[in-house]
Design a protein around this nucleic acid. Structure first.
Length: 443
DNA sequence: TTTTGAGTTGTTCGA
DNA sequence: GTCGAACAACTCAAA
């Protein structure tokens, strides 16, 4: 059983298949050199989840460092495995990697057996009546719900054998990070869900308020497969809050489906007409990006979000939209710069959701926001953080400003907090002018 | 087959 | 102060 982004034992059909008929299961995790590109916070969380997984199987997990097509093949030969079981990966890198591993195994008479997916409905399965994919979320979500999903399975009764009989490299290095990470591991994820579910009926009312603990905070658990969305869907009902929560899981599956069908859109515009949009990439653009990334734009809600990201590896969804809109429409930078920063720092960073969330904000993607829908960071802050508590938590320089006044420091701006780096009204006009240029050029 | 209306997350302007 | 229109262009499903 080769674990990748499914670091759990319960409701894991690939493990069920591996352990069928009492077969001896050797659990493997390959520390792929590709992980080197990850940010420190992501590496730390992954290492913690692996440690918890290893604990849950009596420290049987075999670590191997290196290219998967070599390491998987070598271990399979060492233990005489006829089959290597995996949960299928639908991402661009994972598909290439798995094709290479499958070919290497096949050359030695072994099989790579893909089972299940990280989704309730596997990417590629939801189609319109004519067989083509949906490009708008709402009709997708109706068809997705109509597909239905299997109930979760119980944890299989696998007999783990303790310390591996074969050579085992050490676990991946666990960087020391200042970030306040979520509790790692399958058990912690289930405890979080059990604690959240009784409050899920309030989801649609409070999910947009970044100062409130009004969401499940299970995004990282879903990303690393500490639990499967089936396990959540099985317990969600039809009330407004539960329906909205289910829709958010649907968005995750929608974007996985889009990326599966169009893998190049991880970093390229889905809508090629938007390739003509003028974006800034000069030295001043890089300077503006650095200010954005550091949380020093002078717009309090933007800076609070960017600092929350650096401090915790997570950012509230409403604020993700605001900082994304700000990067694209106020700073006129390529959405890919922001997407890359998010992937480096988010513990829940998922290529499909991240890239297409950014493309939604940038107006380049599937079912994209109309380009003229430009968030006003101050208006949004006053609406969704009316008491200013979120900003004061993450921007201590502004702690002396009371209530919503924290969103408009103006003349009360402390000396250690920056003045706004751009004027929103002027940059809004600039963004609309650039957009008009694109649409005029295509007529 | 064609038409029609709706579509995650908004803002501004003018009546 | 409130309210509706305008801001683009295209997809999709139902009528």
């Amino acid at each position: 059983m080769w674990f990748r982004r499914d670091l759990r034992l319960a409701d894991l059909p690939a493990l069920d298949a591996a352990a069928a008929d009492g077969a001896h299961v050797v659990p493997l995790f390959v520390v792929d050199p590709a992980f080197e590109r990850s940010g420190e916070v992501r590496k730390a969380f992954m290492a913690d989840c692996l440690s918890a997984l290893d604990d849950s199987m009596d420290r049987s997990l075999v670590y191997r460092h290196g290219a998967p097509e070599e390491q998987v093949t070598r271990l399979a030969a060492e233990v005489g495995a006829s089959d290597v079981f995996v949960t299928r990966d639908y991402g661009p890198y994972g598909r290439r990697r798995d094709a290479a591993v499958a070919a290497a195994l096949k050359a030695e008479g072994r099989r790579l057996v893909g089972v299940d997916s990280p989704y309730a409905v596997q990417p590629g399965a939801v189609n319109k009546a004519d067989g083509t994919p949906y490009r708008v979320f709402t009709p997708f979500s109706k068809a997705w719900r109509a597909c239905g999903w299997a109930p979760p399975t119980q944890q299989p009764d696998v007999e783990w054998h303790g310390a591996p009989a074969v050579h085992c490299d050490g676990p991946p290095p666990r960087p020391e990070v200042a970030a306040d990470l979520p509790d790692a591991g399958e058990l912690a994820a289930h405890e979080r869900w059990d604690a959240y579910l009784p409050r899920a009926d309030t989801y649609s009312d409070v999910r947009d308020l970044p100062a409130v603990d009004g969401t499940s905070r299970l995004s990282a658990a879903l990303r690393w497969g500490l639990l499967h969305p089936r396990q959540l869907l099985a317990e969600l009902g039809d009330g407004t809050g539960h329906h909205t929560f289910t829709n958010e899981l649907g968005w995750r599956e929608f974007y996985a489906d889009v990326l599966f069908r169009r893998p190049e859109t991880a970093w390229r515009n889905l809508n090629p007409r938007m390739d003509a949009m003028a974006v800034d990439m000069d030295a001043d653009a890089r300077r503006r990006f650095e200010r954005w990334a550091a949380g020093m734009t002078g717009y309090p809600i933007i800076d609070a979000g960017m600092r929350q990201l650096l401090a915790t590896g997570w950012m509230h969804n409403r604020v993700r939209m605001l900082v994304a809109s700000f990067l694209v429409k106020d700073l006129h930078l390529p959405w890919q710069w922001g997407a890359r920063h998010f992937m480096r720092h988010l513990v829940d960073g998922d290529l499909a959701s991240n890239s297409h969330g950014w493309q939604w904000a940038a107006g380049t993607g599937t079912d994209a926001a109309p380009y003229f829908r430009i968030f006003n960071p101050t208006t949004q802050a006053l609406r969704f953080d009316p008491d200013g508590d979120y900003v004061r938590r993450w921007v201590p320089e502004l702690a002396g400003l009371r209530g919503g006044a924290v969103h408009k420091p103006g003349l009360l701006r402390p000396a250690d907090y920056p003045a706004p780096i751009v004027d929103h009204a002027a940059e809004r006009d600039e963004a609309l002018a650039r957009y008009r240029h694109v649409t005029a050029g295509s007529r």
